[in-house]
Design a protein around this nucleic acid. Structure first.
Lengths: 335, 335
DNA sequence: TTGTAAGCGTTATCAA
DNA sequence: TTGATAACGCTTACAA
């Protein structure tokens, strides 16, 4: 492992000259710089990040934390984050969850963090912030010094979902929720309940679930057991809706006819279901971009940073019944 | 940012005592240790990783590089990697692609790397290996000092696919390939061609493509333009097959009837297509586990490390025609 | 233009 | 059992 000293020795100069030459300082002859660069190349020199970090107290690396890598979701968000960071000369690493990788933040191995992982405790975020680490959260109501939030506009999204569902003229309503500690689930459910009671007196059943396909299957059984017909379901995410699609046929329901479904997230799979799933869409990519930009603003400390909300819109497809479908917008809707 | 010196000062001891106390050395009274730990906690002390790394020359962090985070694929592989690393007290970070994050390897920011990204140049891997970095590759034929490979058994998988396709009794064969620089694609295509010519003299058309859904759509048009009927398609990955499913109906084809399709990868979406997609499956999770274990063996240098191949199997579903389907094994097949 | 030397936060050797 | 100190690889102020 060649270091700066090896280069210095071989070039017959001091280590500071090497450092200057390699870091593009103008204090050095183009001639010596050339010589030094040549030798560095020969020796396969790579600067040791630990040494540099120790001195500079910054790494230009940003960490992002996600709950998992599954499904057609995180990839777009991460991509958005990555793109903006790259344009600003930051490097992105993604934490695969777990306690130890979270420690990279206070350990100063990263200059900042983007958090989209409900399992990342509020307590830790607050404590890191107090110690001066900059963070952007995408999954909770939390902001203050060193923490900003960039959230999905769950409220608007849930309202749009309810409006679409009410327009489908059903007799009963069912809301299937996510885990109780999910911020998204809480807001969507709360808004949906309020919004529905504004519009109709029809009965609504809430089925607590967990945002998984399996949860959707179980919910289907509950709906069937309650003998509900002509029912409108707001599945608070698309995975639940997928589970419904899997279980409903054998329970004697036909999606789009005696059961109308709207989801949330515009998961790619919804496009392949029959009938296609009506859902609430938003730009995952832009969400990521905005989060990254906010973090950069915080780090550069130019006073630009602020909290943000990401817009939602309805993707109308067959699951609410044929009459409401609009096929045109479909193909491009995943981004 | 409290450091080890702050603690020492406050405790009225030397910094070395603090270091010993915090690192569980037996050279220190339980009493002083308790006192020091208490103060450390009070000051929100977190060891600075750069300082520690500089001294210890290892971080216990492993990097994994993937091409992207999309689809129902990487999550399982990453999960397998993560699980094994965690059990061995290593931390996983995932590189979102891009030049700079690759530099983390020679910079000794990480103790080793798992590479599943065709865009990561061979040249770099070899050069890093020469400088002493340990790596496991999952996407190419490359091994030697400091590099081992853990590969999918593409050969066996392709043979299985061809055997299944031939059994479906078609008149023509079409192979749709991935990008020409993809190792997986190369092996699958090469094996498929050899295997088919062993079994039949029926004509085979090779359509070069790119492993994307869009690529599959385009391939469908080519098949239609060639006026092929009763054709058996080996889509070298499932995304291509999905593209076929999207485009074929409007071209007058019915999957499972006049066109039989087999894919590769067992993507989750294949389960939701009509008819369900027959495909080649393998344990993505185990693949990741094996790669991680191999890397750990290399780092611990216990002579255990070796190259590995991951087994494949056929998931029979409707796309080869009804008679070959076996529904039982389906639900559990994603893992 | 180049060299000397201090210092970043930690660990580990040696002496007390 | 504890403390003083060198060392890790690099950057940078200051001296030459």
């Amino acid at each position: 492992m060649a270091g700066i000293r090896d280069i210095a020795k071989k070039a017959g100069v001091s280590i500071s000259t090497v450092s200057y030459a390699l870091n593009g300082s103008s204090k050095v002859t183009e001639e010596t710089r050339a010589k030094i660069k040549h030798i560095a190349m020969e020796l396969n020199y790579v600067p040791n990040l630990a040494g540099r970090t120790l001195k500079k107290q910054s790494t230009n690396i940003i960490a992002m934390y996600v709950a998992d890598f599954g499904g057609d979701f995180y990839s777009h968000v991460i991509d958005g984050v990555d793109q903006v960071l790259r344009a600003n000369h930051y490097e992105l690493i993604v934490g695969a969850g777990g306690d130890k990788s979270r420690a990279l933040i206070p350990q100063r191995f990263v200059d900042g963090a983007v958090i989209l992982d409900q399992a990342f405790p509020d307590r830790l975020i607050k404590s890191f912030a107090k110690q001066g680490s900059k963070m952007v959260v995408m999954d909770r109501e939390l902001s203050g010094t060193n923490v900003h939030k960039v959230l999905l506009d769950n409220t608007k999204g849930a309202e749009q979902a309810i409006r679409a569902l009410v327009a489908a003229k059903v007799d009963y309503y069912v809301f299937i929720s996510g885990p109780s500690d999910s911020y998204d689930s809480q807001i969507r459910l709360q808004t949906a309940l309020a919004s529905l009671s504004d519009k109709t007196d029809a009965p609504v059943v809430v089925i607590p679930s967990d945002f998984t396909i399996e949860g959707g299957r179980k919910a289907a059984k509950k709906i069937s057991n309650a003998h509900l017909k002509n029912v409108g379901v707001f599945a608070l995410n698309d995975e639940l809706a997928i589970g419904l699609y899997e279980a409903l046929p054998e329970l004697g329901y036909t999606v789009g006819k005696d059961i109308k479904i709207i989801g949330f997230d515009n998961d790619l799979i919804g496009h392949y279901l029959t009938p296609q799933l009506t859902t609430i869409d938003y730009s995952k990519h832009k969400w990521g971009e905005t989060a990254a930009q906010t973090l950069i603003d915080m780090i550069k400390d130019n006073g630009q940073a602020s909290n943000h909300y990401i817009e939602t819109k309805v993707i109308r497809r067959g699951s609410l019944g044929e009459e409401t479908v609009n096929h045109d917008q479909d193909r491009l809707s995943h981004f």
